[in-house]
């Protein structure tokens, strides 16, 4: 943990040093940016803008994860599914997030639906690919064991297949979340009048470097909180059966 802290501190020091040689309109000092962020946090509007973005990301992600998992499992567990879907998933995966943003705004108008659909469509393919790859690593002998003991289909899926996919599901969640944040800012930036992306666009329009950085920082901190407060503990809990993971946790 101290290594992580050290690397963050090093970056802040570097930023501070570089900012000494720059005009504040080009690169304000980290102290000024944090002060601005602190001031922003006293205003209720900041929370409502962040909340709007979070809402879009969470709803879009839920849809994206559900669709991505179903597609990934279908591709991984059935030959027909793989043959029918793999080209499409790869094509959808290579389309830039910006394109989904533009298309959804044109189709659904300037509203939440556009953002949510764009996130869902953009995050589903990478999630599907992760799960699909995960199914390749499934231990078929364990499935055979389940069948030999006459487990029902649902039990085999939920208690033998899915647990083996958990590392892949977590990786997919992280990756999907990263993509979702990128898409939501793009959609908010080009079309919507609320959310973090809109605020970035607004302060960009006002040439306020310090606010652009303060909002970016808010965004980054939110992501870190999600990672360390939700994803990491979840991962530790779900993989505590691994001897290696236990040693790591014991040392941390």
């Amino acid at each position: 943990m101290w290594r992580r802290t050290l690397s963050v501190l090093a970056l802040l020091v570097l930023w501070q040093i570089v900012s000494l040689f720059m005009k504040p309109t080009i690169l304000p000092s980290p102290i000024a940016v944090f002060a601005q962020l602190g001031q922003n946090l006293t205003q209720p509007e900041t929370y409502s803008q962040l909340g709007v973005t979070m809402f879009r990301v969470v709803v879009g992600m839920i849809a994206g994860v559900a669709v991505g998992m179903i597609i990934g499992l279908t591709m991984g567990l059935t030959k027909i599914g793989e043959d029918l879907l793999d080209t499409w998933v790869l094509v959808l995966f290579t389309i830039p997030a910006l394109v989904y943003g533009i298309l959804c705004i044109l189709w659904f108008g300037l509203n939440d639906t556009a953002a949510i659909v764009a996130i869902a469509v953009g995050s589903a393919p990478p999630i599907a690919i992760n799960i699909w790859q995960g199914t390749k690593a499934i231990d078929r002998d364990l499935i055979h064991m389940g069948k030999a003991f006459r487990f029902g289909k649902a039990t085999v899926l939920l208690k033998i297949v899915v647990p083996q996919l958990i590392p892949y599901i977590l990786a997919a969640l992280r990756y999907g979340l990263g993509i979702a944040w990128k898409i939501v800012t793009i959609v908010e930036l080009i079309g919507l009048s609320s959310g973090v992306g809109y605020m970035l666009s607004y302060w960009f329009g006002n040439f306020s470097m310090i606010q652009v950085l303060a909002w970016t920082l808010l965004f980054t901190i939110t992501l870190l909180i999600i990672e360390f407060a939700i994803l990491k503990p979840l991962e530790n809990r779900l993989t505590r059966w691994r001897p290696a993971a236990q040693i790591q946790r014991g040392a941390a």
Partner: peptide, 9 residues
């Protein structure tokens, strides 16, 4: 079975 085939989790 010849191998344990236990669910590791």
């Amino acid at each position: 079975f010849q191998q344990p085939r236990l669910l590791a989790w």
